[in-house]
Amino acid sequence: MEPKVIFPLLKRIIPVAAIILIVIWLYQVYGALDYTIKNLPEFFRLVLEHFFLVIVSMATAGSVGVGLGIIMTRKGFDRFGSAIMVLVNIWQSIPSLGVIALAYGFLPLLGLSGIGVVPALIALFFHAVAPIVRNTYAGIQSVSKDVIEAATGMGMTPNQILFRIEIPNALPVIMGGIRTATAIIVGSAPLACLIGGGGLGFWIFTGIALMDMGILMAGAVPVALIAMFFDTLLARLERIVVSAGIQTEEYQAA
């Protein structure tokens, strides 16, 4: 094979191989594998719960965030755009643990339970929606005014411009927001167990409480793998949905 082919391949294989080796090593060295095998049914339950937390909060944050971001760019609403963006940016600066704690403390004031899966989902949703709103808004705003003027002058309706021009051209930025949000959710999901939301966080915090690295790693390693899984998935998705006309070379290499 030509070096031109080998180098990019190596660039992709080396990090993946390194990660796999580290995972195996972590698993072995602390006895996490043994613990997982002994508690296989619980392991599967926690993984499922974890996926549930991530997917449900992603789906809701994604649809609400993209929707809100689009509305903010529409005529009549656009004047609120920058004000909402300020709120969104402040909101995003609150750390994950803070959001979980806020949900725990705030929901009972509304007469809702602060404990369980729903409060956890609500917390994750609110935490993840910010970057999606921000990127959708910024992405659509950044579509060239010339392109919009040409489309308008040619006789496209506002909806046609939105769906055929604005969203497709804003997609790399929107997808960037979704990937950021996913990283936040995957990273925060282990905290859900603190308010009874379940998930692999349970083993992590149990491990910390018992000072047992095996249990901790049995929870932490799958969490890291799930994070990588979602990021890869979204990167792949991005390459499919983003038009080749606006993909940069970096993208195509991703």
Binding site: S144, D146, V147, I148, E149, A150, A151, T152, G153, M154, G155, M156, T157, R164, I165, P168, N169, L171, S243, G245, I246
Partner: peptide, 23 residues
């Protein structure tokens, strides 16, 4: 109708404004 009117008039601008996402 505005939309019909515009579709019956060709429009070319200085900065071209081709749609980057389309071939």
């Amino acid at each position: 109708d505005t939309i019909e009117l515009r579709r019956s008039i060709g429009y070319v601008i200085q900065n071209i404004g081709l749609f980057p996402n389309m071939t």
